[in-house]
Design a protein around this nucleic acid. Sequence first.
DNA 1: ATGAGTGCAAAGGCTTTGCATTAGG
DNA 2: CCTAATGCAAAGCCTTTGCACTCAT
Lengths: 148, 148
Amino acid sequence: MSSLNNMEIHTAVFDLLHNAGQRYTDKRRVIVDILIQAGKPMLITDILLQAKNVPQSTLYRNLLVLEESKAVVRVVTNAESGCYELAEHLMGHHHHMVCAQCGSVSDVLVPEHLEHELEKALAKVARREGFSIDRHQLDLIGRCKNCT
Amino acid sequence: MSSLNNMEIHTAVFDLLHNAGQRYTDKRRVIVDILIQAGKPMLITDILLQAKNVPQSTLYRNLLVLEESKAVVRVVTNAESGCYELAEHLMGHHHHMVCAQCGSVSDVLVPEHLEHELEKALAKVARREGFSIDRHQLDLIGRCKNCT
DNA sequence: ATGAGTGCAAAGGCTTTGCATTAGG
DNA sequence: CCTAATGCAAAGCCTTTGCACTCAT
């Protein structure tokens, strides 16, 4: 499985929330729709701009619920506000190219065999350190096509 | 070059600051000493605890100066406070294990050959997309030994 | 002297929380 | 009905900024 269509994503999110004893409310659906449409990590500030009828507190609380239900993940970044995207099992595993100039983020894939080898090596290192890996995140930082 | 001894690091930091038109003051030396001793990324809150005679504002300002001078880097994490470590040319190239619960970050190495193979693959993908890579960053996200 | 560095306190900005209201099952 | 979810406002917390003081050149 690599990625799902929009309807399948909503169904999957519904199941995830349901299993966590949570409801798939309108606001939550709006948030997920925005993340689907973006197709890449979004800053909370940008989500707020697009979801004008979703108050801050509701957005923050729902992002936490969606994260705990494994529907979204918080992307590690040093941006001024939090950054979220759909979970990997909904989006497919991928990495990010981050433009240091314009801040744009695009998805990128590395060869399957390398990804596999990398995961094995990371698992080994983590085990040695007593660290349990939830996921890994690989970012390329540089200049995008438009900022050269 | 992989890493330097303590004295060499101080000398290198002095040069970096000097080249940037900055002084290597006592407070800055204290901060660098703490980072050297830690040998891993440190949260600002933890640096403050260890450097009791360094006020918050001084710490924040000096970390910025040290970062601009390329002596330290700000590590990207979702921790509650900022996270810094010595720059790669002082510490050697490595990656990070980020605890999603407590926010702690520790350094990790992947096998040399894999690192090399990864860089080749990333260069290839980036070239195809017209993206010029400045650096890459690989984070393991999960639970640290203490948060299991 | 003269500008960089420092320190205290206050201001800013993102995030969380309290509490009353609304809505979904 | 009854609890979860929502919305507004206030509180919290990390970080930045203003301004006066100190130190090194």
